[in-house]
């Protein structure tokens, strides 16, 4: 005997099968980090929401999850910023313009950019964590009047490894957006902030009663940032983090990305801090 859902499933397109995309413009951001534009070889680029991700497949090498880092209103291509940290990401950073790539997506729950309307928005990014936040920044800048104060706090390892440095300068030209950048280590010729990014939180100006915080970076950096935000008076249900775990299927079927009761791929990657706070600091969950 077969439930109704069983018969319905057989006729749908297979979410395991990648679509073919072609690499357009490339930009080397850092010595190991590249931004690629990917356009569909046929049909339209699907819509995406800031904070979502795609699965990128390199022929014969494998597939990895990569957050969208481009403008969601640009309907011609997807933009991904990829750092060479493994076999597949290395292969992606070595692709040339015109190469083809398999792509599944977009997947996952994004940043609460609509829910944040009317609030101050504090975006806390560490290292490559600025990439998944960039679509949210584009969205907020394009709809600036809908938001209160907008604060970007960005931490890097050192001044040389700073992602989107030129774009940060451009954003800084907006008088109505506050940007503080800090580096973990610097030599004396660096005139900016030195220290970890959570240390910028108590120095920033925002209305703690009416702020939404979006945090993305290495997990330890997010733990410390969430604590600093909570200490600054932002309630845990208004703090959002973009989580990362091993992903194979991206659609909740392979079990790999479980984080306690949640699947990062379909319940996240963007998760409310209040939802995961209990297990966030437990080892090896």
């Amino acid at each position: 005997m077969v439930p109704e859902s069983v018969s319905a499933a057989a006729s749908l397109p297979d979410p395991f099968v990648p679509q073919i995309y072609r690499v357009g413009r490339l930009r080397r951001e850092l010595h190991d980090t590249v931004t690629l534009e990917l356009a569909p070889s046929a049909g339209r680029r699907p819509a995406f929401r800031p904070g979502q991700f795609n699965m990128l497949y390199v022929f014969g090498v494998g597939e990895i999850a990569v957050s969208l880092s481009g403008d969601s209103t640009d309907e011609t291509h997807f933009v991904h910023t990829v750092r060479d940290v493994g076999a597949v990401s290395k292969a992606i950073t070595e692709l040339g313009t015109g190469a083809t790539i398999g792509l599944r997506g977009p997947f996952g729950v994004g940043w609460p950019v609509e829910a944040a309307e009317g609030s101050d928005v504090v975006l806390v990014a560490g290292g490559l964590g600025l990439a998944p936040l960039r679509p949210a920044i584009y969205h907020i800048l394009a709809n600036r009047v809908r938001y209160g104060r907008v604060v970007i706090l960005f931490g890097s390892r050192n001044p040389h490894d700073m992602l989107y440095r030129h774009e940060l300068e451009e954003w800084r030209q907006h008088l109505d957006i506050s940007i503080e950048v800090t580096v973990d280590h610097a030599e004396a010729d660096w005139h900016g902030n030195v220290g970890v990014v959570p240390a910028l939180i108590p120095r920033a100006t925002f209305d703690r009663h009416n702020t939404i915080a979006l945090v993305c970076g290495p997990e330890v950096m997010m733990r410390y940032s969430a604590s600093a935000l909570a200490e600054a008076g932002v309630p845990p249900e208004r703090i959002y983090l973009s989580m990362e775990r091993n992903m194979k299927c991206a659609i909740g079927l392979c079990g790999h990305c479980q984080f306690g009761p949640t699947f990062i791929c379909k319940d996240g990657p963007v998760m409310q801090f209040a939802r995961i706070a209990k297990i966030f600091a437990i080892r090896e969950v």
Partner: peptide, 19 residues
Amino acid sequence: DRVFLDGPYRDVTYGMRRQ
């Protein structure tokens, strides 16, 4: 069935074998 067929995405080949 709930794992493979009731989520936002469905496992198509499981559904074909199961139906």
